[in-house]
Amino acid sequence: MSSLMDYMEAYKLLGKYGIKALRASYVLNSGEAVKFSNGKPIVMKLISDKALHKSKSGLVKLNLSSAEDIKSAYDELVKRGQGLKPYKILVQDQVSNGTEIIIGGNTDPQFGKLILLGLGGIYVEVFKDVSVRVCPITEYDASEMIDNLKSKKIIAADDKNEEIVKNLLIKVSKFLVQNEGITELDLNPIILHDGTYDAVDLRLMKG
């Protein structure tokens, strides 16, 4: 039976492979969240095994910076969380606007680890415009994965973004190969912005 890895554990593990996620922390009360924010905008999420699609079910609160906003968002998530126990509340830096992509991993019973790239966020399920390769991938494979997408020009709008996505694919491939026990992975979305990227949501399944 597979289980979801704890968010912060996943955050740290991916960090070891140079896969960068937004600064994040669990909070136990709204005061901790205000402290995390320190006046800057943050995102607050309810994390529960029972909720796969956070943005669809209103379990993500965006762009909170004042203490009042943070407190009311916290209270609302706690209320919603009653039916989703056990849950945790996570705060993250508010991400800048940018292009959302998904990078995923799966385990095929025959061929082993697979890696996937597609346009992220809500679009991935609508358009199913994804490319898949068997791990480990070469640099050429990574380029081809981008090239094969209909949304290529959105994802790799410029050389810089293309380079970021390519490097990220190779890192994720390496991560998947070296971590046999991780059977599925979703980095969705990863936001490409201002010449850099942030993984906003992480889901790692242990086999």
Binding site: G104, G105, N106, Q110, F111, V132, E184, L185, M205
Partner: peptide
């Protein structure tokens, strides 16, 4: 359990190979 698992299924694996 994830987006990826439903998008990168068995046939996608063969196509990738």
């Amino acid at each position: 359990h994830s987006h990826t698992a439903s998008l990168a299924g068995s046939y996608a694996a063969y196509e990738a190979v």
